[in-house]
Design a protein around this nucleic acid. Sequence first.
DNA 1: TAGATTGTTAATCGATTAACAATC
DNA 2: TAGATTGTTAATCGATTAACAATC
Lengths: 216, 216
Amino acid sequence: MEGRNEKKYISKAIINRLPRYYRYLGELKAKGVERISSSELSNIMKVTASQIRQDLNNFGGFGQQGYGYNVDYLQEEIGKILGIDRPHKIVTVGAGNLGSALSGYQNFPRYGFNIMAMFDNDEAKIGKVIHGIPVLPVSGIVDYINENDIEIVILTIPKEAARELLHELEGTKIKGVWNFAHTDFEMPGGIVVENVHLSESLMRLSYEIANSGEPV
Amino acid sequence: MEGRNEKKYISKAIINRLPRYYRYLGELKAKGVERISSSELSNIMKVTASQIRQDLNNFGGFGQQGYGYNVDYLQEEIGKILGIDRPHKIVTVGAGNLGSALSGYQNFPRYGFNIMAMFDNDEAKIGKVIHGIPVLPVSGIVDYINENDIEIVILTIPKEAARELLHELEGTKIKGVWNFAHTDFEMPGGIVVENVHLSESLMRLSYEIANSGEPV
DNA sequence: TAGATTGTTAATCGATTAACAATC
DNA sequence: TAGATTGTTAATCGATTAACAATC
């Protein structure tokens, strides 16, 4: 039995690249490209062909010697690896500007990310329907999650409120948190967290601006 | 004269960590902590003390043997490195949900990121004032940028429109583009681009969900 | 079959961690 | 001075690139 279900550890660097492969393969597919070699893809994506082959071979042999990769098949396989071959039920906490914008984001349903409801404490917002999504009171979120098999919670509330809420959510069936609060959360019990720090992204741009244009 | 103005190349990995240092130092400052050692900071931030010292020493000796680092001073120095010690004038293109949310984001002005105007082609939006920011017609953007010394353009429009617009912006004085369109842009002439792909961030979360909880 | 291109091993490069001398 | 902690060099680790045998 040894070796069964054994999973090679895949580095974060590789995972970070997978969605980008998925996107470029989608564009090729849309253009009607049926097959592509690692070196052609390398030219388009500005990464080495070697890296593409190494990355893909962490998950299996998706190509064929002398032929290359079938675009359609490869994209589908990467989709499976990313878990976007099946739908995900999501709720957003915080019906403010960012929460509403993310909840109404046109592209998410394309990847099976379905926002089912938004939660807020503001009486003025509760009961409203924004981008077709109902706004419900935060007090009912635990029940809602359990009754509707919600997998992912998007957090767009301040960090103090977010911390309290996450504590309540520890007992639920959620599997992941997409956090936009200005702090790094971790969750117990195998609940994974992806922290998105928009300000920090903008700071990196600021750094590049300050330090470009004056080459050595 | 050799060696003057010579700039050591700083890896992307290090730059990515700087805003996080900045944030944690800000929190310590708010708590009234005056000094901190690399090992204390290492405990809080969950990185090695060695990495902290290495990272900082790429930019200068900010600490003192036997003492550690002065929290206030270190944060300020990192702020200078990131270029957030001075204000940045910004415009947003796309007054939709995401563009409006980003433009009204409370935290940006705190770091000197000032959104001056939003641009859109939708007649229904032009002339409005959203979160105190005027919505102007895209046709006037080049003049506006040049007259107001805009440094950064935030893009929240579809990729085709974004590509056309960027072509027009090549001749302007902008220094950076914060791109939310679903494609990777590059700009000539030392204009730097930070591509933010929200869908891809969510896909990474999806991957982690699919691949956690089943350790080897 | 010959040509093309993968899958995979080996070599290189860069980033992280460890160790310790310098010094406050 | 003794103790603490940095700055910095050396060692390790991991990720990327190169090379090539396997094979379609």
